[in-house]
């Protein structure tokens, strides 16, 4: 009996539609998150993550509707993050059928939010999403870096906001540790350096967070091919997450699981 490594596709959802292009045949509506969620479930996804990037708060109702419709049809765990600012937001998402809620920026300005949410709803459903970047690291996607003062954090990784464009000066490893202390049940660790490069996960970042916390860690950012996933797990990730490589059909969930199994890692096989 060994716990299986979780393979998790992430869907970016804007006003109820999947934003990043999705390239699947046999889909009636490739922009419908509910249809995609169903398909990923059938393909062997172990969990699903919806990242709500809806800018206008007026469109938040659409998100709840999408979550409801997904939870009605897909019987695997669903995490929803993006724009979660209050305990009421968490409550609404859980009531709509989310199993876990990801909290990111709102906790940076008010860490107690994590504790309040974990106390009220249970640690198991609160995920701290950390967008980490190397301080003075390589600049990715031509984003202009706006570090606070350019000084290095103790670990060399800092927490960012605004999709990696803005530094906070907070040490990423310390922040993950703090989140665990405040009661979150899991860390969703996104490398903003690796994100979009398709060069593989940031193994150093994963291994530093793994050593610092004893809650599960989901590694995200950098997956480009099926063989990228096993090293992330060997570096200490309990779960691996990717978006575009799955959506574009570059690699399938089954291929990722085959690679993980070939590396002597345990996966859940779906017929």
């Amino acid at each position: 009996m060994t716990l299986a490594v979780r393979v998790i596709p992430c869907l970016d959802v804007d006003a109820g539609r999947v934003v990043k292009g999705v390239n699947f045949e046999n889909l009636r509506d490739a922009g419908d998150p509910v249809e995609l969620a169903k398909l990923y479930g059938e393909m062997g996804a172990d969990e699903l993550v919806f990242l709500d990037i809806t800018a206008s708060s007026g469109n938040r109702e659409t998100t709840y509707d999408i979550v409801r419709r997904t939870a009605d049809q897909v019987f695997i765990p669903l995490t929803v993050g993006g724009g979660v600012r209050t305990v009421e937001d968490v409550d609404k998402l859980l009531r709509s059928g989310a199993d876990k809620v990801g909290i990111n920026t709102a906790a940076i300005s008010r860490p107690d939010f994590l504790q309040e949410a974990a106390k009220r709803f249970g640690s198991q459903c609160i995920v701290l999403s950390v967008d980490a970047r190397r301080v003075n690291g390589k600049v990715n996607n031509q984003l202009s870096l706006q570090t606070n003062d350019g000084t290095a954090t103790p670990s060399g990784f800092e927490v960012t906001t605004h999709g990696g464009r803005q530094g906070t000066g907070i040490d990423a490893i310390e922040w993950a540790t703090r989140g665990a202390e405040l009661g979150v049940g899991e860390i969703l660790l996104n490398s903003m350096d690796a994100d979009g490069t398709k060069d593989g996960f940031d193994l150093e970042l994963i291994s530093l967070v793994r050593k610092a916390v004893s809650i599960p860690v989901i590694a995200s950012g950098g997956a480009g091919k099926a063989s990228d996933f096993a090293p992330a797990v060997q570096a200490g990730a309990d779960a691996v997450l990717a978006a575009s490589v799955f959506h574009f059909g570059t690699v399938s969930i089954a291929e990722v699981k085959r690679e993980l199994a070939a590396a002597q890692l345990t996966v859940r096989q779906v017929n």
């Binding site: 009996m1 060994t2 716990l3 809650i215 599960p216």
Partner: peptide, 13 residues
């Protein structure tokens, strides 16, 4: 256990 919660898919006896 080293990592808690026990979160994910496991087999049973």
């Amino acid at each position: 256990a080293d990592v808690l919660p026990h979160m994910g898919w496991n087999t049973v006896s």
